[in-house]
Design a protein around this nucleic acid. Structure first.
Lengths: 151, 151
DNA sequence: GAATAAACCGCATAAATATTCATTTTGTTA
DNA sequence: TAACAAAATGAATATTTATGCGGTTTATTC
């Protein structure tokens, strides 16, 4: 029963915008699954669902996605050692590397997928990272600097 | 104050595993931001953070996932079929393509001359289009997305 | 089938988060 | 600067979510 119910939960949240466990409970009951909020809370933990803020400012459950796995990805030491300097202006972070290594480092930055980073482009020894806003640029720049230091 | 604080929040959640707003409140206070849980709740909504279940079964705040705001499409048009996603930040539009195709697509974008576009450069799989201002970036980004969809 | 253990789940409640309302702070215009 | 409007915030509280505990069901082994 539990498996079917959890399958139904995944189906429901992908079909509708469901913002609370109570709302989910009602939908589940419509589908013949008569459970309490407590059980749904446990299901959500087991399914590793995320509760996110939508564009409209309301809340919504989402299936597990890249967000979790991507965050754990870290730079490896070799890459951070190729970085000479990091600087930022407005919403752009500029990273200088030793000649020919920019592509490799940029690949690493792409791997550390981060919602603050819109995208990045690399030449031979320079990388430009476009971030969502000025604030993000500062954070990203600072994070990269920290990574350099800890290596 | 609010902006700095929210920037700090982004920094804190990217550096530590923060599972509750109360925990975040303590870290913020350590950093000199003396605010209440209520304010943090509002910040979280504004920053569109997500609360996700970690691998260990605990909870954790994360920045919003890129995939939410990124349009990823696969289509069968001449140039547009090589485009994976379009996004923008401030006055820059970033277009991701399949590997090696960025140059070709960029040539197409240059061809579609537009007074809003200052210029663009292309790497291997990423194009950056610099526009006059923020509004232009939104328009250009929107137009490209439409081109992808209508093909 | 009986005995035992493990998983499941509801109830009640604790813990965490969101929101209302009143106040203060900040920004704007004259 | 004064007067006003808008934004930001805290305190209290409502709402939502997580969990301890005990009962029940399910699975396993004899």
């Amino acid at each position: 029963m539990k498996n079917k119910r959890q399958g139904k939960i995944l189906e429901l949240i992908s079909l509708h915008d469901i913002g609370t466990q109570e709302m989910l409970m009602e939908k589940l009951r419509d589908s013949g699954f008569d459970v309490t909020q407590a059980t749904i809370s446990r299901d959500i933990r087991e399914l590793k669902l995320a509760r996110v803020v939508t564009g409209k400012g309301s809340y919504k459950y989402l299936p597990p996605n890249v967000s979790e796995s991507t965050v754990s990805v870290k730079f490896n030491g070799a890459l951070t050692e190729s970085i000479i300097s990091v600087d930022s202006a407005v919403n752009i972070v500029v990273i200088k590397t030793y000649p020919g290594l920019a592509q490799a480092v940029a690949t690493g930055i792409d791997a550390v997928e981060n919602s603050m980073i819109v995208g990045c482009i690399a030449g031979d020894d320079t990388i430009m990272v476009v971030t969502r806003d000025e604030k993000s640029a500062a954070v990203v720049s600072q994070n990269i600097k920290k990574m350099i230091k800890t290596v």
